[in-house]
């Protein structure tokens, strides 16, 4: 049996240690927000955080998450309110069919947390591992800029 922290809760898993993290999240913990699009680390729909860093959960045996912090899309919003990045995607049209969205939002959220650049080219670069077939990315880039802009405004507001 291994222990891990998922979305702030202590969890234990006693199945096969080589089970993929995505399957453990979806099947054992019923966190189905994390999606599988390709099973080879190409599409990024399965992106979650492992100790705060974005990773492809379809390429990780659950054993590698032992004793570590896993965060999924379900951690970004509470029952009443979407997170800053999710709200920005809603406003700017960053989600269409929604299947790449959880992974896309996670990578974007990582960029927000590390204080990433709001330049479109930098945003496109960090999102390059998350394939989207609906949006043509433009509204996704707009969404991320929107979310980063809010952070900036907030920071400025606090200073004043």
């Amino acid at each position: 049996m291994i222990k891990l922290n998922v979305n702030g809760k202590r969890r234990s898993f006693s199945g096969p240690l080589f089970k993929r993290l995505i399957d453990v999240l979806r099947e054992d913990f019923r966190l189905t927000g994390t999606k599988e699009g390709c099973g080879e680390g190409e599409c990024g729909a399965c992106t979650v955080f492992l100790d705060g860093e974005p990773v492809n959960s379809c390429l990780i045996p659950v054993a590698h998450a032992e004793g570590r912090k896993v965060e999924t899309i379900e951690s970004l919003a509470n029952a009443k309110k979407l997170g800053v990045m999710q709200e920005a995607f809603l406003k700017r049209g960053g989600a269409q069919c929604g299947i790449c969205t959880p992974g896309m939002v996670m990578t974007a959220e990582y960029w927000r947390r590390v204080g990433g650049s709001p330049e479109p080219e930098a945003i496109r670069n960090v999102l390059a591992g998350n394939l989207c077939r609906c949006t043509g990315y433009q509204h996704i880039v707009d969404s991320v800029i929107e979310a980063l802009g809010r952070r900036r405004k907030k920071a400025r507001g606090q200073k004043a």
Binding site: G41, V55, N56, Y110
Partner: peptide, 9 residues
Amino acid sequence: IGAIAIQNR
């Protein structure tokens, strides 16, 4: 190499 999620692993 791939993108950030791959580079992290």
